[in-house]
Amino acid sequence: MRPSILSRPPSTLRAVDVLSPRSLEAALLLKAERPDAVPIQGGTDVMVELNFDRGRPPTLLNLNEVEELRGWSRENGTVWLGAGLTYTEAMEPPLSELLPALAEASRTVGGPQIRNRGTIGGNLGTASPAGDAIPPLLVGDAQVKLVSLRGERVVPLHEFIVGPKRNAMSDDELIAGVHVKPVSGRETFMKIGPRNAMVISVVSLALRVDGDVHAAFGSAGPVPTLVRASTDDVHTLPERVADAASPIDDVRGTAEYRRHALRVLTKRALERCLA
């Protein structure tokens, strides 16, 4: 049996429209017309849904061709990350020096193939409790810029994510990117998984010491959560982070372990960032 070629797809397959705008304006126009369109950038979440037959969105809005969403820049003392910034790009200097925790978090995402495709915007859009980019962005006081034909608005990241896999976007909006404060002190990111690469986080923690102390955890509650402290009361922070968590038992770990690990991670992160 030699491999050969499948004939053309049968015309009776259910239609899925794929729209590939080449500018942000065109994308917003399409999104306004087709509010049910599911944006797809790196495909690392959306394609799994398609391949695993979990969903058949009537329309896919392919954002790969939208130049304006790519890259990053410095703007008025903050760092602008386009929604299409990939994890691989976030790991490269000089960006990795401005946002080291995001770089460390990016290094924990999937394998290189996933990091080459997966984007910050996609991570925010999916709004998973386990989204690896979210804790580092939370400690960097990220502000999410949403755009639509109606205009643009800026939503603080902690308000943007409203529940597990739910965000504050309207049907006609797209994520343009985020503004993040570059670190002036120190920050780090840690993620626990049952093996040493390619894991969904069992629990993760980002911590920034930058005047005050900002800690944010993932996979230990319905949404990644930020906990603040002053440098005077850091000794209570491990307990406060653990208390702020509302973890569950699931196939990846137990609630008890997650809470325990958060204490250990917070303590270690403080040692790293205060040393």
Binding site: T108, M190, N196, V199, R268, R272
Partner: peptide, 12 residues
């Protein structure tokens, strides 16, 4: 231990 998760610098 923990690999790319960056969980220890040697602690524990």
């Amino acid at each position: 231990p923990g690999g790319s998760g960056n969980t220890t610098r040697g602690e524990g």
